[in-house]
Write a protein that binds this DNA or RNA. Structure first.
Length: 985
RNA sequence: GGGCGGUUAGCUCAGUUGGUUAGAGCGCCUGCUUUACACGCAGGAUGUCGGGGGUUCAAAUCCCUCACCGCCCACCA
């Protein structure tokens, strides 16, 4: 049982074991409590679903580290901590990936396969490779509830998506129409505004002459996209533009139409405020089918829409020489033709922003097409209110403003995509009357004319539409749907995904299924919350990056507020906006950049693969590094050097455990019992029980100073970590535990404890007490570290119980209680005393170094100090001996001067050691000190002689300054005296 | 065009109700096999807190301004 730990910490030896253990033991699976019995506080988070095609990157790892720290922490506070994982079907990305695969195989194409076969092919891909990212998560020990893992295209979620769409349609919030959308000519689908980025590019502004039809003159327009000229239906000028006022209403001859062998097309000059007299020539050509502004002008002036570009952005114009040409080739050709006809009068340099498709990097072509839209304003209004009223809080707070700005300038959302992979829109077109029927189930007949020639809409929904519903759909919304159409998970324990043609369900997990099944069938009222919804909605926190604030966060808020307002509270009362929100808090974290603060990108080749780093340094070290760099406001420059440092920290913890193991072993051999303190540590199994009540143990009177001190510190640090995590200050929390464990527990406590753990002498109380205290502090420190370093602490915690010879109270340290203020007694007097002793020790060490006392040599010291400090030094001479190799302490009643003495504000101390003085070095040191003192004194004098300061500064500041002044004066005198003893230069 | 963030030690970063001598990790220098740990121990050096101006008894911290870096939003042909 009591296996000795290897000398050096090797994460590879322990991590996989525990990662598997946590999953196979279902430690983090959370059963849905019955809705009438929700007693424990919950802490619920939804994992931002990574794309199913994804591989884990540093951003994921940061996100998951933060979520995991919080989840583990809340779990250790005795709450029901539920973290729901899942993946997103990611329409475009996944379809592209499989299409690329097909292209690589070269045997068939998407089009040749056809819709059904192609989507089956994507499903096959998903089954084979789709769990890669979840597997990576498992390996990193994310304490999620795997029994609730979802995939956005599973039947249960698809039913919910369909339901949401139909309801929105019934509410009149979804409409279909021909509008200008952002068109990606490569993907040949519409994309939303958010999927478009803008790039400043150097381009040209072409001035083109359009002659008046009556031959009395011409107008020169300015354009950046001459290829759309063929679709012009008007030229607009500002109604107040004196240059053109008299021409309004006249007709122009569109250049180049003759080139197509047709008579010149005539287009009118219209007056519109959009035309800016200051820009270009003040006259703008109007192409409603290919520009959003022109589209609006066209609407205002009732102009026709002339489409001259197809879905590949090739010119489509029968009989035209440009027909079939790519848009950019057409541009060149048209420019040549315009020039040769003399219509091109000027070409000016013009940098302007170009719309780029985020996914393909191709220039977006605004295109008139038939799409489905969600009327967003009613949803946005609620979403704005929810944040305004504080129902949702953003951290950092400034994102509230960003959110607000966006939400207040929101446009209707184009939710249709011309893809095959995704949730197909539940609408059917009538072959007879061409009416559209929206329904939950395939309708038998057209809702308008009753004809039966119906074909389903081919478009699918934007991926973000379904992910925007997740906060409630993952918990079973809408429950028993009106038409009872949903295919619920059944009790079948052997799902055969491979043979499933039409149904795609989550793998069965016995842990949850029974409860959830009864939950669904119990929900007879269509609007009643499912038990999971009742127990877990709203979620508590969403942790995510700013890059999906609008894509996802904002949409979840809108859709959550919209749909959940209709779902009553568990007690049957109506739900208010405050409880309709999908989450109560949003924490936006930083972006992870490389060590040089460059954005990580594949093209730059500076992408740090978390799995590689993890293999090199261990998950815990990488987690700790990310946590310690995660301060709000700035991006994280991922530092491998820091990771190395944190692996050293892990090794330090490991070796502290080894030290304990040795002490326990020796203690046992000397007949000491270890366990007394363990028994007072509240460590019940938090999975099944609530947090045990607080009970601060009382220490025996014989408890040594350093134990009182470390207990006190542990208590204080626990509180500090709790505060930091409450504020999402992962950096402060990490730094607090680091400093505590290394700087206090290892550097001081372990060294001081060696003084007490002498097993060669007769058995005694102090040794017994110390041995048990040591175990207790270390055990608590492991619990403190556990949310940050789950693997290491799990291993060492079990090893500790093994060496003590007691069975661990729970299956995992993750199920024990997080250390709390008050778990250990606070003792300010002991803390103050130990701080003085530390100062004494550090001063002696420094002095020894200055004086060149050999490391191993012990030397006597003289101390001149107050009675209190003298007594302390006297009583703890053994500490001084051990920590600073002081052979004897002599308390003296007079000031100490000389080059072997040092003064601090608390005491003066001298080492009695004969040595050759390095006069120049000593002089340099003293002069440097003097300069520092003088500077300090001058500053203090300046302030103290300032009437305003004395009159206005708070008393404690003035007192402090005076005290400091007096102390510095003394120190200066000492230095001067010491300087005087040196031989003259 | 609008909005936001950053600029502190060689590097990466902490440091907001303004307050006594600005911190950490890494790196650097010196010395150490000491009841776990050289992934270690002990000691040490290092800052015009981006520039300028202002408010204040007092500014890294508040205000103005300039410079540089970065991000987000926006339908100017």
């Amino acid at each position: 049982m009591n296996q000795e730990l290897p000398k050096a910490y090797d994460p590879a030896l322990i991590e996989e074991k525990w990662a598997n253990y946590w999953v196979s033991e279902h430690l983090f699976d959370v059963p849905t409590p019955p809705s009438n019995n929700v007693q424990k506080k919950t802490f619920v988070q939804l994992l931002p679903p990574p794309n199913v095609t994804g591989r884990l990157h540093m951003g994921h790892m940061l996100n998951q580290t933060e979520m995991d720290i919080l989840t583990r922490w809340h779990r250790m506070l005795g709450e029901t901590a539920l973290w729901v994982p899942g993946t997103d079907h990611a329409g475009i990305a996944t379809q592209m990936m499989v299409e690329r695969q097909l292209a690589a195989e070269g045997t068939t194409t998407r089009e040749q396969l056809g819709r059904e076969a192609f989507t089956e092919r994507v499903w096959a891909w998903k089954r084979q490779y789709g769990s890669a990212i979840s597997d990576q998560m498992r390996r990193l020990g994310a304490s999620v509830d795997w029994s609730r893992e979802y995939f956005t295209l599973y039947d249960r979620l698809s039913v919910a998506v369909k339901e949401a769409f139909v309801r929105l349609h019934e509410q009149g919030l979804i409409y279909r129409g021909a509008y200008i959308v952002n068109w990606d000519p490569v993907l040949q689908t519409a994309v939303s505004d958010l999927e478009v980025t803008h790039e400043e590019r150097a381009g040209k502004l072409f001035h083109v002459r359009y002659p008046l039809a009556d031959g009395t003159g011409s107008i020169i327009i300015a354009t950046t996209r001459p290829e759309t000229l063929l679709g012009d239906v008007a030229v607009a000028v500002n109604p107040n533009d004196e240059r053109y006022k008299h021409l309004i209403g006249k007709m122009l001859l569109l250049p180049l139409s003759a080139a197509a062998g047709k008579p010149d097309r005539e287009i009118p000059i219209v007056a519109d405020d959009f035309a800016d007299p200051e820009f270009g020539t003040g006259a703008v050509k109007v192409t409603p089918a290919h520009d959003p502004n022109d589209f609006a002008i066209g609407q205002r002036h009732n102009l026709p829409q002339l489409n001259v570009l197809d879905e590949r952005a090739h010119i489509t114009l029968d009989g035209s020489p440009y027909d079939g040409m790519d848009r950019f080739a057409a541009r060149e050709r048209i420019l040549i033709d315009l020039e040769s006809s003399g219509a091109l009068v000027a070409v000016k340099d013009h940098t302007h922003s170009i719309a780029i498709s985020q996914r393909t990097g191709i220039v977006i072509e605004p295109r008139l097409s038939m799409q489905w839209f969600l009327k967003i304003q009613p949803l946005a209004d609620k979403a704005i209110e929810a944040v305004d009223k504080g129902h949702i809080k953003f951290t950092p707070d400034n994102y509230r403003k960003t959110y607000d700005e966006w939400m207040k300038n929101i446009h209707d959302w184009c939710i249709s995509r011309q893809l095959w992979w995704g949730h197909r829109i539940p609408a059917w077109h009538c072959g007879a009357c061409s009416a559209v029927t929206v329904a939950r189930e395939t309708p038998a007949a057209c809702s308008q004319c009753g004809a039966t020639e119906l074909t389903q809409e081919t478009d699918v929904l934007d991926t973000w539409f379904s992910s925007g519903l997740l906060p409630f759909t993952v918990f079973g919304w809408p429950g028993q749907a009106k038409t009872g159409s949903s295919k619920l998970e059944t009790g079948s324990s052997t799902p055969d995904l491979a043979t499933s043609q039409s149904s795609h369900n989550a793998p069965f997990l016995s842990f949850r299924s029974a409860a959830e099944d009864s939950a669904f069938s119990a929900a007879t009222n269509a609007h009643a919350p499912t038990p999971a919804l009742a127990a877990f909605y709203p979620t508590d926190l969403l942790v995510t990056g700013s890059d999906i604030l609008f894509f996802w966060v904002a949409r979840m808020i809108m859709l959550g507020c919209h749909f959940m307002l209709d779902v009553p509270m568990p007690d049957g009362s109506p739900r208010t906006l405050a409880d309709a929100v999908p989450f109560r808090n949003v924490y936006i974290h930083a972006l992870v950049r490389d060590a040089d603060r460059q954005k990580m990108s594949k093209t730059k080749g500076n992408v740090v693969d978390p799995i590689e780093i993890v293999q090199k340094y261990g998950t815990d070290a990488v987690r700790f590094t990310l946590a310690s760099q995660a301060s709000p406001g700035t991006d994280i420059a991922f530092s491998e050097a820091r990771t190395q440092g944190n692996r050293a920290f892990a090794n330090k913890i490991w070796n502290a455990a080894r030290f304990l193991q040795m002490q326990i072993e020796r203690g046992r051999e000397a007949g000491y019992a270890v366990s007394a303190f363990l028994s007072v540590i509240p460590a019940g199994d938090l999975l099944s029980s609530a947090l045990p009540p607080l009970s601060t143990p009382t220490l025996p009177a014989t408890t040594p100073l350093e134990t009182r001190w470390i207990f006190s510190r542990l208590s204080a640090v626990s509180a500090e970590v709790e505060r930091a995590l409450t504020d999402y200050r992962f950096d402060e929390a990490a730094s607090a535990v680091y400093q505590f464990f290394w700087g206090e527990f290892c550097d001081w406590y372990l060294e001081l404890v060696k003084l007490r753990l002498d097993f060669t002498i007769e058995k005694n109380n102090v040794t017994a007490l110390t041995l048990n205290a040591l175990v207790a502090v270390f055990e608590a420190a492991l619990r403190l570290l556990s949310p940050f370093m789950p693997f290491l602490t799990e291993e060492l915690w079990h090893a500790l119980y093994a060496s003590v010879g007691t069975e661990a109270p729970t299956k995992s340290i993750a199920l024990t209680r997080f250390p709390q203020l008050g778990d250990f007694p606070a003792d300010p007097a002991s803390v103050a005393a130990l701080e003085v002793l530390q100062e004494l020790i550090v001063t002696v060490r420094g002095l020894r170094k200055d004086l060149g006392v050999p490391e191993k040599e012990a030397a006597p010291v003289q101390i001149f100090a107050s009675n209190r400090i003298s007594a302390l030094a006297d009583a703890n001479a053994d500490m001084l001996a051990r920590m600073a190799r002081v052979s004897a302490v002599e308390l003296v009643g007079q000031a100490l001067t000389g080059n072997n003495a040092r003064a601090t504000s608390n005491f003066e101390i001298a080492i009695l050691y004969e040595r050759q003085i390095d006069v120049p070095a000593e002089r340099e040191r003293l002069e440097k000190d003097l300069a520092k003192f003088d500077k300090g004194l001058a500053a203090a004098e300046r302030q103290l002689s300032n009437e305003g300061f004395v009159a206005k500064a708070p008393p404690h500041i003035i007192e402090g300054l005076k005290k400091q002044y007096a102390e510095t004066t003394t120190l200066k005198e000492k230095a001067l005296a010491a300087l005087a003893t040196l031989p003259p230069r």
